[in-house]
């Protein structure tokens, strides 16, 4: 993990409720924690002029969508972001999807699910239930964009995502 990611993650608040959307009331408590942590994360990003994603969820907090963007050589590339909260959350991390990039990179599974590094899963498992959506964005999507966007730009396949 690079130092930047490490220091960002250390500033995110930790969650306490172990609940999935199947656990009605406990899920509401968990969802409040998730939203609070995300709000804090976005605020932190904005303060540091490093804002890089926007997400919102449906009423039950089970489906999320938004945008993420990455600057490379002074150009902003922006993509749709979506994910679902799995039945066995938080034991299983959410699988983050960039559907528009499906077929453009091999570091991706069907439906545009990003291919996480081998370090992500062990780290997530060690931190159940303390890590939430904010952590998964910081630890898996952030590093993924940093590694893949330069390659995608280099291959000239994401010109249409310039903003």
């Amino acid at each position: 993990m690079d130092e930047g990611t490490k220091s960002t993650v250390s500033k995110l608040p930790l969650l306490t409720v172990r609940a999935s959307p199947r656990d009605k009331e406990a899920w509401t408590a968990r969802l409040k924690e998730e939203l609070t942590a995300l709000i804090q994360y976005v605020k932190l990003n904005k303060e540091q002029d490093k804002d890089w994603f926007h997400v919102e969820c449906n009423k039950t907090g089970t489906r999320w969508n938004g945008k993420c963007w990455y600057y490379y050589e002074q150009i902003r590339y922006e993509f749709d972001l979506e994910f679902e909260i799995p039945v066995t959350y938080p034991t299983s991390a959410p699988e983050l999807k960039l559907p528009q990039l499906e077929g453009l990179t091999s570091k991706m599974y069907r439906g545009g699910k990003i291919c996480q590094t081998i370090h992500f899963q062990p780290l997530w498992a060690k931190n159940v239930p303390r890590f939430g959506i904010a952590h998964s964005l910081a630890l898996s999507l952030g590093p993924w964009l940093a590694a893949e966007i330069p390659d995608l730009v280099g291959r000239g396949v994401i010109d249409s995502f310039k903003k």
């Binding site: 939203l35 609070t36 995300l38 976005v42």
Partner: peptide, 18 residues
């Protein structure tokens, strides 16, 4: 290190994030 409860309810938080 934990998330602090701001007293806001679910809908408040959702619209805040949005």
């Amino acid at each position: 290190e934990r998330v602090k409860d701001t007293g806001a309810d679910l809908e408040d938080l959702m619209s805040q994030l949005k």
